[in-house]
Write a protein that binds this DNA or RNA. Structure first.
Lengths: 130, 130
DNA sequence: ACCTTACTACGAAGGTGTTCGTTGGTCAAG
DNA sequence: CTTGACCAACGAACACCTTCGTAGTAAGGT
């Protein structure tokens, strides 16, 4: 058996499900579905099918010991966020983190607290560099 | 005629073409193709087909006055980058710009110059805020 | 034992993304 | 006039994404 370390980039619908699993922790299809359908109409079997496919892809893990299987994200939120940010960084921003930040801030004005957070972040990275 | 202001999110292949158009300026299919095929094998007609579809979607504009049509991106690089960054920000980072930056920096270590750039950027935004 | 409920599994359908081969048109050189 | 180079257009094929309906099964109550 081959233990491959990289996963396919999650699609839009898959990412929505991962988001639920990350914030709620391991959950059944029903729990994920009810969380999602609070925001938008969604059929139970559609969510189920997606989660089955995600299991095949390795995006989630499934515990089948109970009748209602329990799913969990196979990678922590930060890991996947790193993949996604890195991917977009290369594909659309030629690797320039500052261009990416410009885009993000232009799209969604940050609060003062957010800016302070950013400042601290950059400071920490500069610290490491030295 | 309806002048809609928003465009579909470009797909991976489409984004690659836009990247070429942004850096070279208006260009023919042949020019785009030869630029792309310097990096990876690509059929001329595949690039052509994609650019035709992008014309339908409004992602690029086409000048047909010459026999070899001249294509140009219908939105400047910054506009599209803003869309993409904003989209990912909402879908994967719950709107947190600092989380996005953490992901980007983790994926691709920034140089000292890059960090200085980031620091300046945040400073300017904080300036505006006040 | 029977019915209801709550699951999983599965397949089909419709849409989209990407690739590739073929066709037909224009132009200039021979 | 014919040939070859270069171009746009188009359709077919294939894979992937997403949705939805249906079938089968385990569990619990009556």
């Amino acid at each position: 058996m081959v233990k491959s370390n990289d996963l396919p980039r999650p699609t839009d619908a898959e990412l929505e499900i991962l988001t639920v699993l990350w914030s709620r922790g391991p959950a059944t299809v029903r729990e994920v579905h009810s969380t999602i359908s609070r925001r938008r109409p969604a059929h139970y079997t559609t969510v189920l099918k997606l989660m089955q496919i995600m299991t095949d892809k390795g995006l989630v893990k499934r515990d089948e010991k109970q009748r209602a299987h329990i799913y969990s994200a196979s990678r922590p939120r930060e890991w996947t966020q790193r993949q996604l940010a890195g991917d977009l960084l290369e594909r659309a921003f030629a690797g320039s983190a500052s261009s990416l930040l410009v885009g993000a801030l232009a799209a969604r004005k940050a609060s003062a607290a957010e800016l302070a957070e950013l400042r601290k972040l950059v400071g920490e990275y500069e610290e490491e560099k030295r």
